[in-house]
Amino acid sequence: MTQLSELQMDALTELFNVGVSRAAASFSEIVNDRVELTVPKIEICRLAEIGEKKLSSDEKRRVGAVSQRFSGAFDANALLFFAEEHTLKILGDMLGSQVSADELAEFEQEAMCELGNIILNSCLSAMTDMLGITLNSSLPQYYIGTYPDLSKALVGRTDDSYIILMDVTLAIRKQGVEGQIVFVLSTPSLASLVSSLDRLIENI
């Protein structure tokens, strides 16, 4: 596995930090409230470990997840998670108080895809601006399930390749709503991303 230097790891963390900061700003505009961010954590681990090690701190908790694939200079699967009980609160903020709870539930799939699309694209576009590259995005998909179910479905494979897991929490404190963004990159994509980072570092 590629061993990243301290500077490469720093650059990767900063790249993600810039991305999620932009995502938090977009999320804040959507819900019209302040969104707080944790400092992003980056870990490189085996793909098969994701479900066990990273996303299953509360295995029974049901979450809504928007998944979007990005491809180009590198390929990534970007995921936005919210606890299922929080998704309707977020949609209430997005759609306004005149929409009933039944109607909100009806819109859930479509609205969460749109929310994910805006937040994940904000994140990715800040990262591609910084690297001077272009990525194409697929249509977002929405899933509901437990963390172990979702990680298996979303990551898709359970082979031994390494992945980079970038994890950050966005929180609307007043509402008690917390979401997570996770990026999954395959080993070759990680190598491509690191090459882009190396070019950025060389050009300083």
Binding site: N17, V18, S21, R22, A24, A25, S28, E29, V35, A126
Partner: peptide
Amino acid sequence: FSANTQEY
């Protein structure tokens, strides 16, 4: 300096 351009 921040990418977090929230109004707050």
